[in-house]
Computed example of a mutant assay.
Amino acid sequence: MSGLSKTTPLPVEIKLHQASKQLEIHFDEGSCFVLPCEYLRVYSPSAEVRGHGAGPGTLQVGKEGVNIADIVPVGNYAVKLVFDDGHDSGLYSWDHLYELGCNQAVNWQNYLDKLAQAGASRAG
């Protein structure tokens, strides 16, 4: 899986705003997303977070203060985000980043609902 479909918009600029803990991504078709580091961390495409195969994944808790420590390009189709909590195993394809941007409100509400159901907290 290359993580890049024929219709995937490509990022033309990726900026990390460490003070506000947000990643700003501009795509070539004109869209721009400002994604909180916490959101990117809890929606990491890693097997640790998403689960192996059809597994349910692991609910990420206590990630409210997480930041990105480094952004490592991976070929011409993805970046590896290195988080300051030590998590660095997810490859964020352009498809995944674009989907996270387009569906941010719904994804975030789903995450908050899962936290509430589990009696868990965003606070670290």
Rank of each mutant, 00 (worst) to 15 (best):
residue 32 C to G: 08
residue 93 S to L: 06
residue 101 G to K: 03
residue 114 K to S: 14
residue 99 E to A: 13
residue 43 Y to A: 00
residue 46 S to M: 05
residue 19 A to L: 14
residue 114 K to E: 15
residue 38 E to I: 08
residue 102 C to T: 10
residue 99 E to M: 15
residue 113 D to S: 15
residue 75 G to H: 00
residue 46 S to E: 04
residue 74 V to N: 06
residue 34 V to L: 08
residue 63 K to F: 04
residue 20 S to G: 06
residue 41 R to H: 04
residue 67 N to M: 04
residue 82 V to A: 09
residue 47 A to S: 08
residue 115 L to D: 06
residue 99 E to F: 14
residue 105 A to R: 12
residue 36 P to R: 08
residue 114 K to C: 14
residue 83 F to K: 03
residue 27 F to D: 03
residue 25 I to T: 04
residue 32 C to R: 13
residue 86 G to C: 13
residue 44 S to N: 11
residue 24 E to R: 07
residue 92 Y to M: 05
residue 92 Y to W: 09
residue 27 F to G: 00
residue 49 V to R: 07
residue 90 G to Y: 04
residue 97 L to A: 02
residue 75 G to D: 06
residue 65 G to Y: 11
residue 28 D to G: 03
residue 103 N to M: 12
residue 93 S to P: 01
residue 108 W to H: 09
residue 104 Q to L: 08
residue 73 P to C: 07
residue 107 N to G: 10
residue 18 Q to I: 12
residue 117 Q to K: 15
residue 96 H to T: 05
residue 30 G to C: 10
residue 99 E to P: 09
residue 111 Y to G: 10
residue 102 C to A: 12
residue 40 L to Y: 01
residue 50 R to S: 03
residue 96 H to F: 11
residue 93 S to V: 07
residue 100 L to G: 00
residue 108 W to N: 08
residue 90 G to I: 01
residue 38 E to F: 07
residue 22 Q to D: 05
residue 115 L to H: 11
residue 29 E to M: 11
residue 20 S to M: 12
residue 31 S to M: 11
residue 113 D to R: 15
residue 62 G to W: 01
residue 39 Y to H: 06
residue 35 L to W: 01
residue 88 D to N: 15
residue 112 L to E: 14
residue 73 P to S: 07
residue 105 A to Q: 14
residue 23 L to C: 03
residue 19 A to I: 15
residue 63 K to A: 01
residue 32 C to N: 10
residue 96 H to I: 10
residue 21 K to N: 09
residue 40 L to W: 05
residue 99 E to G: 12
residue 47 A to Q: 08
residue 89 S to P: 02
residue 83 F to E: 00
residue 43 Y to N: 04
residue 82 V to R: 11
residue 91 L to A: 08
residue 116 A to H: 15
residue 70 D to S: 11
residue 90 G to E: 05
residue 98 Y to I: 04
residue 74 V to D: 07
residue 75 G to Y: 03
residue 77 Y to K: 06
residue 78 A to F: 06
residue 104 Q to V: 05
residue 56 P to Q: 11
residue 53 G to W: 12
residue 77 Y to C: 04
residue 74 V to I: 13
residue 87 H to D: 10
residue 29 E to C: 11
residue 64 E to S: 05
residue 106 V to Y: 11
residue 51 G to K: 11
residue 51 G to Y: 07
residue 83 F to G: 01
residue 48 E to C: 08
residue 104 Q to T: 00
residue 57 G to P: 03
residue 20 S to D: 12
residue 60 Q to G: 02
residue 78 A to V: 11
residue 41 R to S: 01
residue 115 L to K: 10
residue 16 L to A: 09
residue 100 L to S: 00
residue 101 G to P: 02
residue 67 N to S: 15
residue 38 E to W: 05
residue 50 R to A: 02
residue 74 V to P: 01
residue 33 F to G: 02
residue 115 L to T: 09
residue 37 C to H: 06
residue 67 N to R: 05
residue 67 N to W: 03
residue 22 Q to R: 10
residue 15 K to T: 15
residue 56 P to K: 13
residue 33 F to D: 03
residue 26 H to L: 09
residue 71 I to T: 03
residue 22 Q to C: 09
residue 65 G to C: 06
residue 102 C to S: 09
residue 117 Q to M: 14
